[in-house]
Design a protein around this nucleic acid. Structure first.
Lengths: 151, 151
DNA sequence: CCGAATCGTAATAAATGAAGTTACATGAAA
DNA sequence: TTTCATGTAACTTCATTTATTACGATTCGG
């Protein structure tokens, strides 16, 4: 099953952007994430529509964060990406005539709905600021264990 | 995102089998589920390895349930199918060098792990017998609302 | 105004993975 | 021994995501 990694991707991009004062170009972000600039534009474009980032063209252009990291949550990003399907498991036929299949679908639907609600609630409680601090903590820990890294 | 519908499929098959006294052939099950007999064999073969069903070759052969429906749960079936990935959303890179990405992955991992645990716990509480009764209830309800269906 | 930098986006290709199909071997029953 | 049915390998089809190519539109510096 191929997984949608856009949420992971935009998080990665946003945290890098948060550390930069200047706008970052699609090209730079694409290198960070070992992907293609066009893919970056496409995905970041969705965040722009949601008012989370802004883009500027021309020299010294690129992407900047406009949202407040203290209030921006993973849930916001998930929504901005169009609330993609959370589960890789689903019903064979969503609107079956067969009563047996209807009973099966109903049971699975409940289970999936509960799990999705939990996941999205969890997402709503994680802000980008929290993640940025988590990264800072990891960064400090690494500097401690490897005193002279080549950065 | 293409969803794995094997759990839904085998549930459908098992409930039909539960209503039959005789073994059901892959051909018959395939017709029930509008799929191919080989797909049925492939999927049911996993359940056989888990001791949930048995198969017999030759005339009057086919598939029979060997497990106790009162104790067989959706979780058992999920396990028998090889515990396929539950989520359609994942990390871009599971073992990144980048500390930013590590922080992102860690946060997402927690959220997904909790939701998956909830889902699987839910699955563990739904037995096939429960589903069979649910089907019976729907069947009775339909007979009531449509007094003379052509079945 | 020119030219380089950069985003915007359409169109297309490649990659992935589930499901479906074909073909044939194996085994059981009458 | 014939027929029915599973077992399984190999291959094709189909849908979707991601990557790529190509080019147009915009912005800045000189």
């Amino acid at each position: 099953m191929k997984r949608d990694s856009r949420l992971s991707s935009v998080l990665h991009a946003l945290l890098h952007m948060a550390e930069h004062d200047q706008p970052m170009t699609s090209e730079t972000l694409a290198q960070c994430m070992t992907t293609n600039p066009v893919v970056v534009r496409r995905t970041m474009g969705l965040l722009r529509e949601a008012g989370i980032v802004a883009s500027a063209r021309g020299p010294s252009g690129g992407w900047t964060i406009t949202a407040d990291l203290e209030t921006l949550t993973l849930r916001d990003l998930h929504n901005a990406l169009g609330e993609p399907a959370v589960f890789a498991i689903g019903n064979r036929n969503e609107t079956p005539d067969c009563l047996v299949e209807q009973a099966v679908n109903a049971a699975l639907h409940d289970a999936f709905a509960q799990a999705e609600a939990l996941l999205l609630d969890h997402f709503a409680q994680i802000t980008l600021a929290t993640l940025a601090r988590d990264f800072a903590r990891r960064h400090a820990a690494r500097r401690q264990t490897t005193p002279h890294p080549q950065e």
